[in-house]
Simulated assay, not measured.
Amino acid sequence: MSTAASSILVSASPGERRVALWRDGALEAAFVERPARPDGVGDLHVGRVTARVPALSGAFVALEGGVSGFLPDNQGGGQPEGTYLPVRVTRAAQGGKGPRLSGNGVPPGTARDGPPRLLARGPDAALRLAASHPMVPVLVDAAGEAARLRAALGADRARLLTHSAFDDAVEAAFDILSGPEVPLPGGGRLLIHPTPALTALDVDTGAAAGRDAGAHRAVNAAALAEAVRQIRLRHLAGPILLDLAGGTAKTRAALLPVLRGAAGGDPLLRVVGLTGLGLMEMVRARVHPPLHEVLGQPLTPLTHGLAALRRAVREAAARPGVRLSLRAHPAVLLALRGLSGVLDAYAAAAAHPISLASDPALVPGEEVIEDVATHAP
């Protein structure tokens, strides 16, 4: 694969699917999906109205599995309690809140009788990107994923690779997304700190701090474009505050048109203006869960475990017939055992199961892949 080409890249590994839109040598869109725990956006359900909440201009609706979603009155709500009705998920559960629902645009003839149940899954990230970029090829590194995508997109659209869909450049871009720090040209960095109430972005000029004012301004200018890019790639939403490095309220206000220009390519993002403290205020509509909720910040034991299985699959492919063991902290192993189908998926991909060895001395992130025969007693 040439990272200079425009491609939709789908890298599948046990328990996880990573999807990227790579264009002109840069990451333009990124998704990390756990197929056993889909975010549900686009799913079609039959739900039951359980509680009308006039103060919120909507109602809570029970979905399959005991999940409760919120249906605004202007999205087809207003039905009395106890009513069964078809609804679609328009916003994933996130931030401790359930999914947002809509009854608008539901296909005619959709079932309306109980009990609450899932009728159809919405499109996953690869299908959404393929629909919005119809001329861009879809490159896949797993036969099962390739077959699924070919069935939906046509045999010529999805191409099965004999190597990983993610090269070093794509992996490096995803690594940056998993952490709170983003390097900026000129030695600065952008720091990203999500909280339950809002996301704070802070610009640190770093090496540019002791240089001339031009270098300082250049870091701030680069931070504006990169902040918008990171907001989009990480699916950050809700209130967002950006604190530039230095400058007066007047000089910061002068940069608002630059920020609005950068934000123009994201239909979910709106630049509100400058706060009384000189912070650039933005707000972004919530749709998919932010990456820090999917991966954890710091990374969760499950995220570390899935990354270890990804490495193990690559090693198993390079050494056919060798049985491998994963030695990891008990929390990592517990998380893997708790994710439906992930260990079976590894066994199918590697042609043999992986042995799990608990080692409390290894903190999450220090997982070790070993040859079973080498370490057998």
Rank of each mutant, 00 (worst) to 15 (best):
A350H: 04
S132W: 01
Q75I: 04
P134S: 00
A130P: 02
P185H: 07
K250G: 10
A221D: 15
N74H: 14
T83H: 01
L277W: 12
G154I: 10
A130I: 08
H216Y: 10
R100D: 14
L139H: 11
E281G: 06
L139I: 02
A62F: 05
V271K: 12
A245L: 03
V49L: 03
A351H: 15
A348C: 03
V19I: 15
R88A: 10
S13F: 12
A169D: 12
A5F: 02
T248A: 08
P289G: 06
E366I: 03
S132P: 06
G276W: 08
D39I: 00
A335H: 05
D359T: 06
L339V: 07
S132N: 07
T3D: 15
V332Q: 02
T90K: 10
L177C: 04
A376Q: 14
V87F: 00
A245V: 07
G96D: 02
S102C: 10
A345Q: 14
T251M: 03
A307H: 09
L277F: 15
E16H: 08
V283T: 15
E370T: 14
A59Y: 02
R337F: 04
S355K: 08
L259A: 15
A165E: 08
A225G: 14
A331R: 07
S2A: 12
P194S: 07
R117V: 00
G365H: 05
D344K: 07
G188L: 00
V283G: 11
E33W: 02
A5Y: 03
A51P: 02
P86D: 05
L184R: 04
R23T: 10
V258N: 08
L291G: 11
V182K: 05
R17I: 12
P364T: 00
A59N: 02
L356I: 08
G186H: 11
H288E: 13
A262M: 09
G247N: 10
K250L: 13
L177W: 04
A245W: 04
G296W: 13
R23N: 06
L71D: 05
A126S: 04
D212K: 07
A361D: 14
L149C: 06
A208N: 09
A357G: 00
V136D: 05
D266C: 01
R52V: 11
L184W: 09
L201I: 13
L343N: 06
P108G: 10
H292C: 09
G58M: 00
A172E: 12
T248L: 04
A285T: 11
A207E: 15
E181H: 10
V258W: 11
P196T: 13
G78V: 03
R323C: 05
A143R: 07
G15W: 09
K250S: 14
R18A: 09
L302Y: 09
